[in-house]
Design a protein around this nucleic acid. Structure first.
Lengths: 187, 187
DNA sequence: GCGGCTGATGTCAGTTGCTGTCATCACCAT
DNA sequence: ATGGTGATGACAGCAACTGACATCAGCCGC
């Protein structure tokens, strides 16, 4: 295994997913991950800021999808509906890798540090969504509320999707947004 | 400073707040906190699970207030309104220590690890609120949605309260819930 | 084809958060 | 006073993370 094997980052992600899944996040050392990837601990930290981040690589793509979906919604679309459409698009993406999502979520759910990291990633999504809404002329507070409410819906629908094996995730998202509307209306 | 000075935990919290405020969270070592409190590093970790937790002591009281508020709401109150009432009560509590809230929030906002910890504490609030709603007979998804939406409103209103110096935090909470209702209705 | 440049990796030493273990000491009940 | 109990100190150790410097593959100009 020479020094110059390609795709070091991908190998590290792969090794980390395997080890976190096999023996758990806490019981896995960074040295072990690096070793399985044929690299050193120091190199791991050149690719990822910390031991958690290796599980969240690729989150940027999802964020871009959310933002562009909001940006491309018709001007007449209400903020909450633009957000809903964005999450429907995200759900369609995630649905293509359901098994991967399930494994990843099982790892994250089993560890508090990883849950913390996931929450701050979702918060970053909310912030980006709110910015995208403001670009559409939505007022500050309304933009933040629509974005955060959207994240809330997504979190709940995501868990539900993985738990029930519901085949159509985008539809589940739609239904969950409808239920949010009902709840907010005081039903 | 003898071994048996009272209120070790309180002294650690005090010392940590001071040092985090003076030189920042990352630039403060646990040994320094313990030293300022007249204790050792080992004792710090007997009182707090980690370096972050020292800033979140007392969060349990707020959670209990939220839960009991929901539990005590009239049976006819809609879930979202029970949640709103709970956060109004919490806001009234926080308002009594506005300056403390401001300093604490400034420290947290300055550091990603602390923001992560805060988010998981809020998630814990959401979970407890959802449980309290289920005890009232609210359906699973609706309970989770009302709780998470409430947290979303609170997060936004809290920042707004500290940023604007608005005197009446509970009223700000009420207005923010109204705005959520408008946003969710597609306004 | 050769030498130098660049960027990715390896090596090593060090700091700090955090834990396990055992000794020590204040306080309290008897 | 005596022994038990709970909080604290002292010490050793692991693992996450960082800085500094060496090394090596591939590419570029010549």
């Amino acid at each position: 295994m020479g020094r110059w094997e390609p795709n070091a980052r991908g190998r590290l992600v792969q090794a980390a997913m395997e080890l976190y899944g096999e023996r758990g996040y806490e019981q896995t050392t960074v040295a072990e991950i690096a070793n399985r990837a044929g690299l050193t601990e120091r190199t791991f930290f050149r690719h990822f800021a910390d031991k958690r981040e290796v599980l969240f690589w690729g989150g940027g793509a999802l964020q871009e999808l959310l933002v562009s979906s909001v940006a491309e919604a018709p001007a007449s679309t209400a903020p909450i509906d633009a957000v809903a459409a964005a999450f429907e698009a995200a759900a369609a993406q995630l649905q293509e890798r359901r098994e991967h999502s399930r494994q990843r979520q099982a790892i994250i759910a089993a560890n508090a540090e990883l849950r913390e990291r996931e929450l701050i990633k979702l918060e970053s999504f909310a912030s980006a969504l709110a910015d995208a809404l403001r670009l559409r002329g939505v007022a500050d507070t309304a933009a933040s509320l629509a974005a955060e409410a959207g994240i809330a819906v997504f979190k709940i629908a995501f868990v539900h999707w993985l738990a029930t094996g519901q085949p159509d995730f985008p539809q589940l998202i739609r239904e969950s947004f409808d239920e949010l509307k009902a709840v907010a209306a005081g039903k």
